[in-house]
Write a protein that binds this DNA or RNA. Structure first.
Length: 879
RNA sequence: GGACGUAUAGCUCAGUUGGUUAGAGCACUACGUUGACAUCGUAGGGGUCAGCGGUUCGAGUCCGUUUACGUCCACCA
């Protein structure tokens, strides 16, 4: 027999169980079992270069609760872990840690080794392959640290099912997905103005764009009209004046009707631009007339596309003004020499500096009537400006060649897919619908970065060595994954790379979401193992947070629809955010992030999990260490109550696992089981609705009541010296109820319940001995407990005991103080019920048996009884 | 501007299809070491259920409206 410890030391015990679970493969997935017996979690792959905070612990606990419940229901759990390691965050960290910069034109240096360097050391340029190797070193370290934390938290992940979004398998799936999207006509490449981050020098997608409120200025600028007259335009972006291609006003705007069809002359640059009607011009805003520049915003892009006007691109990929020649090409001017002189003042400047300079130029400029085109001092305002979510400078529209996935024409189909999925909580589906309805661009999936999945594409070159983008050469699916920078396209030799009549590689990598949108296919081995794919796809649950519904959830639904015509999972479960005590979202930029390490140490993993388990899905929750303390206290209570139950049984040599429901024979015990069965049903129903918090609440409430009341009432019988039916029933009830509570708590408190389970309930040392593969309690399990003939006899006993205790508290006496006279008034029916429990009550309440009086009568409304307990004059020596 | 959510005790939160006197924990107060538990127990005080209006025999719950807070989307002249 295993020795039961006096004290629970959570650090040691939790470490012990982590090792045991690992050694026994308690959480491993069995690929042989069929789909209907399997439950699949599409685990969110955390960005490894970020640091984990308490919010991650919160949401990953939620999925683990659901996984553990399903496992105890007998399901074969496929609960993998992925790491999102490609993309910008890793690149940034690698650049800083190793002081390197990727230069994709350098050859690979096999001798080069990545070394961490101080911030003051010079930056070294390395090849793309060397750079990626360095990324691999960093992500491997990060992944190990993350895995350690997840194990500390007790996540029941199958650690054999791991993937990293940059690994070979994921690259293969991502490239295969791309090729199929090309084949099915969903992916296309086009040279077009695209939202562009000038610092990262990459295109970005609509989903990665956010508005930030920034100070700016209105500038009122007078334009001349070709054959006389003028008008004033209000703009916040005067630096785009040289890129002005048209001037527009609303077609119904009376003020400008007479100007439509004429040309305006831009100040400083003398460019003749058409004055045109346009629906998007709002007469209420500014002066009602505005300039269209290539490109100031999405409306400019849209207008330019429809108008077929020439493009005047003045902002380059680095965010500085490009050198252009006025009087040549599309940069027309009435006075090219003066225009060029003015532009020379701006060329090479960044956007902010160009803005400042052009205001000075406008102020100094004189129109024919001698006035300045800048008709007033710039007026300050706060306005929303679009930023890349990871960027520091406003986005610009730059014309580049990019790969896109068609979304706009499929909005209705994608909305319908969202409706086939059950969202928890349900209102989160609205966010998905809103996002799909609000889409205004196709999905740009190409990024001008290095650490990511390359496009498996090359382009033939013409006699001049220029790439022909209209004839892309795609890699063969069997050859995936490929890096076109080092692999040669079919039918070419490496010597033809970059040569006339040769080929060039597509230099770009995919958006990180292009890979992470495939997590279900990555896990199911889509296209590689059809049997496994059929067995795992669609999945059961996708846990995630709500701010990435528009990215991760949305793109995953897109990919599943394109590739399989299916939804990727049946349920999406959304965790809320952790708010700091001021109810602000915890985020790195705000600097209010709380890391979980010390909390797990102090409050135990079970305590921290308890805190997370109390929060319902989707509800933002304030960080509260007090709740973790409550969780730890619950563990202690469970520990002590279990020791008591086991000691009671073993005092008389009973085997705790040998009791069955038919041995519950005493009326009070049978009545207790009416309650316990209700609790089991509530827990099960709640879990089936993914409402783990309600399951915990019901279990916890019942457990405390069990400790406070039943354990007190039962002592007379369980401590009894005589081996009779009453005692056997008490022991059976203790054994069965403890076994029940341990399993009900197991998803929430996996360490503590496993510890206690291992004392006496575990049937073996291996996987089968774990409480986490034991079956979750059902009410059917206790069907063989006979119904009591005295309904409420347990409740009656409890109520009288509570009132006796209350009398002692009021009398400022200890709970062991004897009661000399007890009068109980109630209905005959309730008194009869009470009499069944009376011996237990009298013993627990230290009532002298000869001092009890019953009266038939009406107690206060809501009560079963009115109780008068007279405290004894003094403590007898025996007490 | 559009959408969604939240508002219940000092704090963190429950409150089911409308149904007795609105609950729990923390904190607070008092009492008590009792044969599982001082990492404790027992008991107590504490609420105009954000405001207003409506439906109903009856509203924390349903409807309308207002306010505050949060989030997402739109908004760059």
């Amino acid at each position: 027999m295993k020795e039961i410890p006096d004290k629970y030391k959570h650090k040691e015990q939790e470490a012990k169980w982590r090792e045991t679970w690992k050694a026994n493969g308690v959480f491993s997935w069995d690929p042989a079992r069929p789909r209907e017996e399997t439950f699949i979690v599409d685990t969110p792959p955390p960005t490894v270069s970020g640091s984990l905070h308490i919010g991650h612990v919160f949401s990953y606990t939620h999925q683990d609760l659901l996984a553990r419940y399903q496992r105890m229901k007998g399901k074969n759990l496929c609960y993998p872990m992925g790491w999102d390691d490609n993309g910008l965050p890793t690149e940034r960290r690698v650049q800083n840690l190793f002081r390197i910069q990727c230069n994709p034109h350098l050859p690979y240096d096999p001798e080069w080794k990545a070394e961490k360097k101080g911030a003051k050391q010079p930056v070294q340029e390395v090849s793309r392959r060397n750079f990626i190797e360095a990324c691999g070193i960093v992500t491997a370290e990060d992944e190990a640290a993350f895995e350690g934390l997840w194990r500390s938290l007790g996540l029941s992940i199958d650690w054999d099912l791991q993937y990293a979004t940059i690994d070979e398998h994921c690259r293969k799936i991502s490239q295969a997905s791309f090729l199929e999207m090309v084949e099915k006509g969903y992916a296309y490449s086009i040279e077009a103005p695209t939202m562009w981050d000038v610092d990262f020098q990459t295109a970005v997608a609509q989903a990665e764009v956010e508005d930030r409120s920034r100070p700016g200025h209105f500038h009122d600028i007078r334009f001349q009209v070709e054959d006389g007259g003028d008008f004033i335009i209000t703009t916040t972006r005067p630096e785009l004046l040289p890129a002005c291609i048209a001037v527009v006003a609303h077609p119904d705007d009376a003020r400008y009707q007479s100007l439509f069809g004429k040309n305006a002359i831009t100040p400083l640059f003398g460019a003749k631009v058409p004055i045109m009607p346009a629906e998007h011009a709002d007469p209420e805003k500014g002066s009602g007339i505005l300039m269209v520049c290539t490109f100031g915003d999405a409306a400019d892009v849209e207008f330019w596309k429809q108008s077929k006007l020439p493009i005047k691109q003045i902002i380059g990929r680095t965010g500085t003004l490009l050198p252009v020649e006025f009087g040549q090409g599309d940069f027309n001017s009435e006075n090219p020499k003066q225009a060029q002189k003015n532009y020379q003042e701006l060329a090479g400047l960044g956007v902010a500096k160009a803005k400042k300079r052009i205001v000075e130029l406008l102020a100094a400029e004189r129109l024919v009537d001698g006035s300045s085109p800048l008709v007033s001092e710039p007026r300050p305002l706060e306005h929303p400006v679009k930023f890349y979510e990871k960027g520091d400078r406003p986005l610009e529209f730059v014309t580049t060649r990019q790969w896109f996935v068609r979304l706009l024409e499929h909005r209705d189909a994608l909305k319908a897919q969202g409706q086939k999925i059950t969202w928890h909580p349900a209102h989160m589906q609205t966010r998905y619908q809103n996002w799909v309805e609000g889409l205004n661009q196709d999905w740009c999936i190409s990024r001008q970065r290095y650490f990511g999945v390359p496009f498996p594409v090359w382009y033939p070159t013409d006699a001049q060595g220029e790439a022909d983008f209209s004839q892309p050469i795609f890699a063969d699916v069997a050859s995936l994954p490929v890096d076109p920078m080092s692999a040669t396209p079919p039918g070419y030799s490496e010597g033809q790379r970059g040569q006339p009549n040769g080929f060039v590689a597509d230099p770009d990598v995919m958006d990180t979401w292009a890979t992470s949108s495939l997590t279900p296919q990555i896990i199911s081995h889509w296209g590689l193992d059809e049997k496994r794919h059929q067995n795992l796809f669609p999945m059961d649950i996708r846990p995630q947070s709500h701010e990435i519904i528009r990215t991760w959830a949305f793109y995953t639904i897109v990919k599943a629809w394109i590739h399989s015509g299916e939804i990727p999972w049946n349920h999406v479960v959304i965790s809320g955010w952790i708010l700091d005590p001021d109810r602000k979202k915890m985020s790195k930029s705000v600097g209010n992030v709380i890391t979980p390490g010390h909390l797990l140490e102090e409050h135990s993993a079970d305590g921290v999990r308890y805190w997370a388990s109390r929060a319902r899905l989707g509800a933002d929750t304030a960080f509260d260490e007090g709740v973790m303390k409550v969780g730890k206290r619950l563990c202690t209570k469970l520990f002590n109550a279990s020791r008591f139950v086991i000691s009671q049984l073993e005092r008389v040599g009973a085997d705790i696992s040998a009791f069955g429901p038919e041995q519950v024979t005493t009326e009070v015990d049978r009545d207790l089981f009416v309650r316990l069965k209700k609790t089991v049903v509530t827990a099960e129903k709640s879990f089936e609705k993914f409402d783990y918090a309600a399951a915990l609440e019901a279990t916890e409430k019942e457990f405390w009541a069990f400790c406070d009341d039943y354990l007190e009432l039962v002592k007379r019988r369980s401590y009894g010296e005589e081996d009779n039916e009453d005692r056997r029933s008490a022991l059976a009830t203790l054994a069965l109820s403890l076994k029940m509570f341990l399993r009900l708590f197991a998803p929430f408190l996996p360490f503590m319940t496993e510890e206690i389970w291992s004392w006496r309930f575990a049937k073996s040392e291996g996987k089968e001995g774990s409480v986490h593969v034991a079956s979750f309690p059902t009410s059917a399990e206790y069907a063989a407990v006979a119904e009591t003939k005295y309904t409420n006899c347990y409740a009656a006993g409890v109520e009288v005991l509570v009132k006796i205790r209350s009398a002692k508290t009021e009398g400022k006496k200890s709970l062991r103080w004897p009661i000399s006279q007890l009068t109980v008034r109630g209905s005959q029916e309730n008194l009869d019920a009470l009499k069944v429990a009376l011996d237990d009550v009298l013993e627990a309440g230290c009532v002298q048996p000869d001092g009890v009086t019953f009266e038939v009568g009406e107690p206060k409304e809501g009560d079963l009884f009115e109780v008068v307990a007279v405290l004894a004059e003094e403590v007898p020596a025996s007490a």
